[in-house]
Design a protein around this nucleic acid. Sequence first.
DNA 1: CTGAAAGCGCTTACAG
DNA 2: CTGAAAGCGCTTACAG
Lengths: 337, 337
Amino acid sequence: MPDSVTLSHVAREAGVSPSTVSRVINGTARVAPEKERAVYEAIRRLGYQPNLIAQGLAKGKSMSVGVITQDVASPYYGEVIKGVEEGLSGSPYYPVFASGHWRPDAEREAFKVLNGRKIDGLIVMGGLLPDDELRALAGGLPTVVLGRTVPGLEPDCLTVDHVQGAYEATRHLIDLGHRRIAHIAGPLYQQDARDRLEGYRRALADANLNFDPRLVVEGDYHEPSGLMAVEALLARGALFTAIFSSNDQMAYGARLALYRRGIQVPGEVSLVGFDDLPGSSYTTPPLTTVAQPSLEFGREAARAILSKLEGRPYAFAPLANRLVVRESTALLRQGVR
Amino acid sequence: MPDSVTLSHVAREAGVSPSTVSRVINGTARVAPEKERAVYEAIRRLGYQPNLIAQGLAKGKSMSVGVITQDVASPYYGEVIKGVEEGLSGSPYYPVFASGHWRPDAEREAFKVLNGRKIDGLIVMGGLLPDDELRALAGGLPTVVLGRTVPGLEPDCLTVDHVQGAYEATRHLIDLGHRRIAHIAGPLYQQDARDRLEGYRRALADANLNFDPRLVVEGDYHEPSGLMAVEALLARGALFTAIFSSNDQMAYGARLALYRRGIQVPGEVSLVGFDDLPGSSYTTPPLTTVAQPSLEFGREAARAILSKLEGRPYAFAPLANRLVVRESTALLRQGVR
DNA sequence: CTGAAAGCGCTTACAG
DNA sequence: CTGAAAGCGCTTACAG
């Protein structure tokens, strides 16, 4: 932190008191036009920039909002983070990130750090912190929770309906004539993974198709688990003509497993993902998937926290997933498998 | 910022002066064992957490390092950011991110914000800020520049040798028998894109192959431009049996263009990328590419800035790209194209 | 070893 | 409209 020009310097330069300088900067009280001009002039001349740290201490707020994310390098969270960044830009608030790495203790640690930095608000993206701890946090701080619904905290929770998204994906496969549809589930300790499994089951049920547990394998949302899931399915002799993967990354893995086995997509097996990652329109073939409004998700979270910070309650805009049909799904060809 | 327990509360509770509490917290002077114990006890009982903002103001340092990144949601930067995060964790310093979006004015703005937050050090990832501005920044603040070399600032700049990486990629293709190798370049206003083009040219020259400008197309490092590049190549009737793409994302685009035309990879055209994004081992076929040590890149930056913050000079550990041969490249088949 | 005091750079009642 | 003063929560010479 190099020595820098302070408010007092500006005051001296402008021939007014520090209080006055503060007032013109914050527009917090009427100031004589000449003085105002003098202050602005001095600011310009000195290249003065307010010390946000000092401001924070004096005002009792740091003008920052903490964001607990799980993995900055994940393509999905990357988009959400970007949305938060965009949503906050232009406001006086600044995001400060901390990673939970999907470990409750890391999340607690992240919160402690953020708390020490006196954040004014908190955005929690998913995570595994128990509901009651989340409620405690939200009790002490304006909070927005992304991707999970915490009982008692509903108005602060923003989620997208994954059941519906998964339902549509499965329905799409059924409409194409598929009857034996495998599902690569996400880690079932996560709400969204359970929801997507549920959507899959409902679509089957509504089409009078039996749910066959031998057709579902649990993965961990990463590519290798998608590959292993297909291997597992094949190893157990499961018959299927389509796969609904709980996210795109696992679908990539599944795609590769199929490729290695020489199984055509979508010729022999149709494949649907979930998330619509940026790369999914560039897989071969381009992946049919459920698009999540991840950028908008982040923006919406930013808007919500901004409102709350100003003491206004906020009603989330409804956000919906939507199926994007590309080229990895096709009509069931009779006689295959 | 909810009302919280302050140092004075702890002092009162422990029956000592605030100074003493500060001293035991910071281990900044010897304190009588009983008092020390009393203080710790009080801290525990009250759940006290130091206010980093106030500490920052008093100490004249904020214990934070600013990180100017270009795009948080890019898969490549995501990894680097993660590396920085990891490298800083465990230290008392905390990263604060700001995005430059590859626009000099946005970078300036980002720096202003960070400056207002009184960061103690700065990590600049790439970007388009003119060299002299970067030198000015580095003059006022411990700085580490990633991915570009600024004249006069060499000891603060960490780069990987892209010329060498591109050379190896091209060489690999040549070794496979390819003679007509197309190159999809990155945006040539970026140093790394120019370096990779240079590596391509050198490898050709060393193999006594002519450089054919009709075989190179400039893209923008994103998928669509890779697709368009192949279209352009095809449209101009260029003959090639291999493509070296300046990054993986454009290679994905190229792959799709080839797929659409029914051109086999690697049967008819071999394809090499650069970056080794997490998804590249899961494309079909898995992509041969030049692996960048992106995570390590970020960690190294963190180590460097930490050293500098403690006043110790730092010599960067050498970081190298390495070719990862997967399945998108194959021996030239005679008679094709 | 330890406390009282001053100070970090701001803001904000309080007077006028 | 405007200045002097107190205060935000810490740290750190300065005395003792």
